[in-house]
Amino acid sequence: MITHSLFFRLKYPIGSPEEHTFFNALAKLSTISGVENFTILKQISQKNEFDYGLNIEFENQEAFQTFHQNPHHALFFKIYWPDFVEDCMELDFEKADLVDIPN
């Protein structure tokens, strides 16, 4: 399982029409084949400068690569990301089987 996470701050105020436009476009990425557990997050503390997050899971590296090569993904990042996002951090992780964690 691969977890793809983006944490970001928009150029526009929280609750603005631009914010609404951005998140409607972002949500359409959830329909790309291989996307699992698509979750948009909002910050609830002041521990960092990001207001929002996005978590997506992929079953394997192939699904992860397919997502990144999808034309809808490329178009979103060409049209919306540069005009709407002020700052971001991207994290990509896979499960590390370092210890047995009890259920």
Rank of each mutant, 00 (worst) to 15 (best):
E59M: 07
P71F: 13
N55S: 13
F77Y: 14
S5G: 05
L91R: 07
H20P: 00
F84D: 00
K95N: 10
E94R: 12
D97L: 04
A74G: 10
N103R: 08
I2K: 13
D83E: 15
L75F: 09
E19G: 04
P82H: 07
P102I: 03
P82Q: 02
K42I: 07
P13V: 04
L54K: 08
L54Y: 15
G53A: 09
E59P: 00
L98Y: 01
S45D: 15
K28N: 10
L29S: 00
Y52F: 14
N60K: 09
S33V: 11
F8T: 07
Q65E: 15
D97E: 05
N103L: 10
T66A: 15
I101F: 07
Q65L: 15
L98C: 01
G53M: 10
Q61G: 04
V99G: 00
L98T: 03
I101L: 05
E94T: 12
F7H: 07
P102L: 14
I56Y: 08
F76T: 06
Q69P: 00
P82K: 03
E36L: 11
I32Y: 07
Y80E: 00
K47V: 06
V85D: 06
E94G: 08
N55Y: 11
K11R: 12
W81P: 02
V35E: 12
G53P: 03
V99M: 09
E62H: 13
A63R: 04
D83Q: 15
Q43S: 10
V99R: 09
F23P: 00
C88H: 09
I79S: 15
A27N: 13
E18F: 12
E86G: 13
E57I: 02
I56N: 05
F76I: 04
S30V: 09
K95Y: 09
P82T: 06
E86I: 06
I40R: 08
L98R: 03
I14Y: 11
K42N: 11
Q46C: 14
F23W: 07
Q43M: 09
D92W: 13
P13M: 05
D97Q: 04
P17Q: 08
L75Q: 14
S5P: 02
R9P: 01
A96P: 00
N24R: 11
H73P: 12
H20Y: 07
F50I: 01
A27D: 15
N103T: 01
F77H: 09
I44S: 04
S5V: 13
E62P: 10
S5M: 13
L29H: 01
L29R: 03
E94D: 05
H68K: 15
C88L: 10
G53E: 10
N70E: 09
L98G: 01
Q46I: 13
L41R: 09
I40L: 01
E94P: 01
T3L: 11
Q46T: 15
N55M: 11
S16K: 11
L6P: 02
S30Y: 06
H20E: 12
N37E: 14
Y80A: 00
E19V: 14
S30M: 08
M89G: 05
M1N: 03
V35D: 11
D51N: 13
E90P: 01
T39V: 08
T66P: 02
L6A: 06
N24C: 06
I44H: 10
F58W: 02
I44A: 10
I79E: 15
